[in-house]
Design a protein around this nucleic acid. Structure first.
Lengths: 167, 167
DNA sequence: GTTGAACGTTGATATCTTCGATGATGGATA
DNA sequence: TATCCATCATCGAAGATATCAACGTTCAAC
């Protein structure tokens, strides 16, 4: 709180009284939490237009980085329960967006690889998500957005995505 | 991606190969999402020590700002389903942390007010959460944290918490 | 070879969210 | 005043999620 004040007159016509004294609004932690919720809302809504959910997109995007991720890797990387990953990959395999291939070096694991069709789906989703994010971060100047990305990265240093290995 | 590179040697001793090419790591949106998840994990774990969950704390903290919030307000403010709020307030009333009082100006509404016991619970939770957040944001200088808070606030301008009214 | 651990999978359970319906109330209109 | 519609809180059912224990397979260490 005590910041700016540029948006306070936004709802002037409506009989709403903005609560400048809302305690959580002064807490960096809750701001981060809430901002992430709002963004996720936007992304989810944008993806809904092409019949995809955010987690599906996250997996697609993760797999695009390399062919060597296992389901366990995804679980840790995206904070998903291993059980959830099984169901997700099942679905993606039905859609022919990914393939499970046994890792020859460790036959317990699968190497999850993106199919050509998966890449196309990712490309489309990527457009949609990028658009939603641009709108969300639109209020920030380019260098600010860069600074924000830097800070967020530093907050997670050592916790993510460093804990992921390519066996 | 393409940023800094200060943390890449953090897990040097472990046989892990950090994936610098992880695509989502370059996306501001996902960084925000993931950072919020990690922070929530920390906060949840910290609150677990005193037998409280994060949402319970959020409501407690929201109510501390003024006596005039209704359940509907909470619902919008915290992105909670009205149904969920009912159950939450029920629980809080059982714990004698809040009271429901009919709003005399609009008898459909309740004014939710914090009891003395509720304030004590909030004080304790506040300590715990503040500690967890301090640890999480520890890697940031004070002015950086301030800048971060400012940017997050600006991202939500007009969407939160401006939409909340005190009838 | 034996032991213990990791990976993927399954199924049961608990929890949360979502949706529609309801009764009470308020506000606007005629 | 009477009528109509929206809002608030609540309930119950249905759907989606997360959580947990257990299993077979495979790997690594001894």
């Amino acid at each position: 709180m005590a910041r700016s004040g540029t948006a306070e007159q936004a709802g002037a016509q409506a009989p709403l009284t903005p609560r400048a004294d809302f305690p959580l609004a002064g807490r960096s932690g809750y701001l981060l939490h809430k901002a992430a919720l709002l963004l996720l809302e936007d992304v989810e809504q944008a993806l809904d237009g092409i019949g995809m959910r955010s987690r599906y997109f996250f997996v697609l995007a993760s797999l695009a980085g390399g062919p060597d991720l296992s389901q366990q890797d995804l679980s840790r990387l995206l904070s998903l329960d291993p059980t959830t990953v099984v169901a997700l990959v099942d679905e993606m395999e039905r859609n022919q967006h990914v393939e499970r291939r046994r890792n020859p070096a460790d036959r317990r694991r699968y190497n999850l690889i993106l199919t050509e069709s998966g890449r196309e789906a990712l490309a489309e989703a990527d457009r949609v998500v990028t658009e939603a994010e641009s709108a969300f971060f639109g209020g920030l100047a380019d260098d600010e957005r860069e600074a924000l990305r830097g800070m967020l990265g530093r907050l997670m240093e050592g916790r993510w995505p460093a804990s992921v290995c390519t066996a």
